[in-house]
Structure formats: structure tokens, C-alpha cells
């Protein structure tokens, strides 16, 4: 089998890298595809406790029968 695997060594390498990437993502809780996070902001130290009026929220669309 080793001889056969050597014939597809680049596929083996790609598979190994993919698996390593998967293990790394699992270790650090990283999603490989997509993220629900929209933005990361640095807040004023005094303002993060209360966000009143910071955002009103705006619904962009929804299904309605």
C-alpha cells in the first residue's frame, strides 16, 4: 500500500494538510466556512456596560405569508 500511496503523494499531502487544518480549527474553535460574526469593534471602556440607543435595529426583510 505504501508504494501505491507514493504514486499519489500529492493527494496524500493535501489530505494530511486538510486533516491538520481540521484539527487546528477544532483545537481553537475556528469555523472553516462562514461565521455568524458581523464585526468586531473596540469599545470605550465606559460605554460597554450600557448600550442604550447605540443601535435601533433594522429589519431588512422577512418571510410573511
Amino acid at each position: 500500500m505504501l508504494e501505491k500511496l507514493l504514486k499519489i503523494k500529492y493527494v496524500v499531502l493535501a489530505g494530511g494538510l486538510l486533516t491538520a487544518g481540521f484539527a487546528w480549527a477544532g483545537m481553537y474553535g475556528t469555523r472553516l466556512l462562514g461565521d455568524d460574526l458581523e464585526s468586531v469593534e473596540k469599545m470605550d471602556n465606559n460605554s460597554y456596560q450600557h448600550g442604550s440607543g447605540r443601535r435601533s435595529g433594522h429589519r431588512t426583510g422577512f418571510y410573511h405569508k
Binding site: 468586531v40 473596540k42 469599545m43 460597554y48 443601535r55 429589519r59
Partner: peptide
């Protein structure tokens, strides 16, 4: 429906992670 914009705030660093559900 209810739309909920959410901020996850790191109280130490002040980083705010914004997302909406």
C-alpha cells in the same frame, strides 16, 4: 418575528463582537 442584534462584550479588553439573529 423578533430580530435581536447582539453585542458580545469582552469586559477586559473592551472588544465587542457584533452579530444579529
Amino acid at each position: 418575528w423578533v430580530e435581536v442584534p447582539i453585542s458580545l462584550i469582552n469586559e477586559t479588553s473592551g472588544q465587542s463582537y457584533e452579530f444579529t439573529r
